[in-house]
Design a protein around this nucleic acid. Structure first.
Lengths: 246, 246
DNA sequence: TTCGTCGCTTGACCCGCATCAAGCGACGCA
DNA sequence: TGCGTCGCTTGATGCGGGTCAAGCGACGAA
């Protein structure tokens, strides 16, 4: 459990952190008006750079803040003492890390950058204070929490009732959609995670993930070259996910 | 999709709803002091009786309130149009239903009573208003949301990395612990749900659940008679859940 | 009391995915 | 430029749990 060296803080003009951020329509302050933006001034305490493979926080660390991703890509995972390990999510720009720490005042997961990343640190007590004053912020925050609950429910559905290829198809479509939301191509992108991490997230072994990729490629649904994915037939992927079980 | 008749409202002295409730140390107002209890007066808009097999709400219904269970037992499930169906949780007294509806203003799950039940309806806008005034209520509510996130993460772990018997053992231990928290026996209780519902929750078929019960019984870990469970060796169950995968 | 239904148990069989194993290409480092 | 490592692919084999099927006991209705 060797923790990384202290993460350097980046000095920025935090008074305008959110207003100038081009993610504000995806992120926590989504939908706030100019006046409300003034009020949430000071929500961001710091920016942190997290290099690839570095931890943003560890399971068990005291919970003090949540983090909004400005740039980069993360995974969260849980490693139990008996060696069971599971990726619980992949997060990209505009998404929030650390919500699971609120319940026990300690982080439950590890958060690890899968590429060099940049996050906004939002001290939780400050967020609570502001949420009591700025109603739309309170509402947005509640929605983000609820959205996380819904997201996890859909993973439960996936793990509980889909077979390997359906899971991978669902995973790819989800990634594709989130890339598109951020202005990237929905059909062509680079995976940031390994086959093993995908498998861990989907409840599969890496070999099964690899085989499913190959099968999709053989069937002309997509092309894979290492981490580069090009989706050729997203309808077929959707059909896979949506098809009823006999 | 035949909806049940309107659920009858029970007239009660709602001004003292929480103060007089013996679940207040498990439920949302957990930890509030006398003064704060005064302030959250009016949080409960109504009580609802929900008879066994009746829906409290359906997936797709507009989200207006969350519900605190006073008496009874519920399941939540999702039924997708392609016939995939999954139980996403079982809820008992003091627990909160409906948090997943916040994100989209519509309920995502169905909530069905598995025995005659009694819930407190908490209109969500009223809760948001009060949360802005009563800081400990805000904190408790955030903790409940986060706790739901953590609960679902543990189900993800279970579905992603445990085998059938481990899943059932984890499920029984969890039930047992929650029974105990509510003053019931940890070692002897009646299941409210069918084998099929257990299986759906655990990502297994009902036959597999049944076989695992029989195996546990053969090994002397517990006795099963229909829905009546007596746990004889909870350490062995814990060992099953905790054991490392080779 | 009888009958029908529902939930559960148990057996037989089979399939999807895990497991084990070998090999290969990309990449980083000496 | 060569070598080691890491991530990935692919094949062979086995097993856990899904599927199909039969039967039974508890319970409710007539």
């Amino acid at each position: 459990m060797n923790k990384p060296a202290t993460i350097p803080l980046t000095p920025v003009n935090l008074r305008t952190a959110c207003i100038q951020c081009n993610l504000r329509e995806l992120c926590l302050p989504m939908g706030l008006d100019a006046n409300e933006f003034e009020q949430i001034d000071g929500l961001i305490a710091a920016r942190k750079r997290v290099k690839r493979q570095q931890h943003l926080y560890h399971a068990g660390d005291p919970f003090e803040a949540i983090y909004a991703i400005r740039i980069g890509f993360f995974k969260t995972d849980i490693l139990t003492e008996d060696g069971r390990d599971q990726v619980t999510g992949f997060q990209m720009a505009g998404e929030i890390l650390g919500l699971d720490g609120i319940s026990t005042d300690r982080h439950v997961c590890n958060a690890v950058a899968l590429e060099d990343s940049d996050v906004c640190m939002i001290p939780f007590d400050r967020l609570e204070d502001l949420s009591r004053k700025v109603e739309p912020l309170q509402r947005q925050f509640n929605r983000f929490m609820s959205r996380e609950i819904v997201r996890e429910q859909s993973i439960m559905m996936l793990l509980g009732s889909m077979r390997a290829e359906e899971r991978l198809a669902a995973f790819l479509l989800n990634l594709s959609q989130r890339m598109q939301l951020r202005g990237y191509s929905a059909s062509e992108f680079n995976l940031r995670m390994t086959r093993e991490e995908i498998g861990s997230y989907l409840g599969l072994k890496l070999e099964t993930v690899s085989r499913a990729f190959s099968k999709f490629q053989d069937e002309g649904l997509l092309t894979v070259h290492q981490k580069h994915i090009q989706i050729l037939n997203s309808d077929a992927l959707r059909a896979l996910v949506g098809r009823a079980h006999v």
